[in-house]
């Protein structure tokens, strides 16, 4: 009897600790990023990091202006969003409301397959096929540019957007739809005027989570966007994102150097951006569930 109680409290202790460990991880990630990131600003002004237009880590003196990288990320994210949001929401509507049940299950498993294709494989396809294809069709100087990246990123964000939007669409109460039908609306009018607005906060959350996914994606952009750390003038030019900068340069940066710390500062920026996006989308999602 006594042994049973001791065993019980030991297990309970470990289970409670495990919850604590999850919090600890987030805290540690933030702490370790911050810890190394602030060391950059001992010698390098914060203002120049945030507003500097040049990222030249190995020139003398080095420049760690994050603007070109931030813009690079924003460019590809923006275009990827433009591509995937309409397609994603349309597919979610089709899957949730129009497709018959068997087709729905098939489509959903295809979306799962898409979600499981490793990003590096998509990057590879970008290099050997999509890049050259876009170069030839659009008569570009190089296929390794923002647009190629945007297309692939859009593909990667689609599963997130579709599955979460679909959930939101499905959870619109049946009575809403029946009321619209009762007034003589067609199925499309019902979808467009009733279902879509009611599901809107869930759909917006889906879009935001998709955007979070795109901003954080590394391998695809590193492989296909040409990696030029310049302020991009057009999506058809090579550019470089925050993520690709860390992935591409960390191998060469000497541990403890300014460059090394600068990459942690970039990581911290990424952490903060995705934190905000996720936090907002969760608030939206919890609201849409009510």
């Amino acid at each position: 009897m006594c042994i049973r109680e001791i065993k019980e409290s030991v297990i309970e202790f470990f289970i409670k600790i495990s919850g604590f460990i999850i919090i600890l991880f987030v805290f540690l990630i933030f702490l370790f990023l911050l810890n190394d990131a602030v060391l950059l600003f001992k010698d390098f002004p914060l203002k120049e990091f945030i507003f500097g237009k040049r990222w030249l880590p190995i020139s003398n003196p080095p420049h760690f202006g994050i603007v070109p990288l931030l813009l690079g990320s924003l460019y590809v994210t923006f275009f990827a969003t433009i591509i995937c949001v309409p397609v994603g929401i349309a597919s979610a509507l089709f899957i949730a409301e129009i497709a018959p049940k068997f087709l729905r299950n098939i489509l959903k498993s295809f979306i799962e397959i898409l979600a499981s294709i490793p990003s590096v494989v998509l990057g590879f396809v970008g290099i050997v096929w999509l890049g050259p294809f876009l170069k030839d069709t659009l008569k570009l100087n190089t296929g390794m540019c923002g647009l190629t990246g945007s297309f692939l990123l859009a593909l990667m964000a689609l599963p997130t957007i579709i599955s979460i939007s679909e959930d939101a669409i499905i959870s619109v109460p049946k009575s809403f739809k029946e009321a619209a039908f009762g007034l003589g609306a067609t199925r499309w009018q019902t979808l467009w005027r009733v279902v879509l607005p009611s599901a809107s906060s869930g759909i917006i959350a889906a879009i935001m989570l998709g955007i979070g996914r795109v901003i954080g994606e590394t391998m695809v952009v590193m492989m296909v966007t040409g990696n030029a750390p310049l302020v991009p003038k057009s999506i058809l030019q090579p550019l470089r994102t925050l993520t690709a900068t860390i992935a591409g340069e960390m191998g060469e940066a000497i541990s403890g150097s300014e460059h090394y710390f600068a990459l942690f500062a970039v990581g911290l920026v990424l952490f903060i951006i995705t934190f905000i996006i996720n936090f907002l989308s969760v608030i939206l999602l919890s609201r849409s569930k009510k």
């Binding site: 370790f32 990581g267 996720n278």
Partner: peptide, 13 residues
């Protein structure tokens, strides 16, 4: 939050 952190940031951490 953990689910939203970019994979490269995990790499850094």
């Amino acid at each position: 939050n953990l689910s939203g952190i970019p994979s490269i940031v995990y790499g850094l951490f």
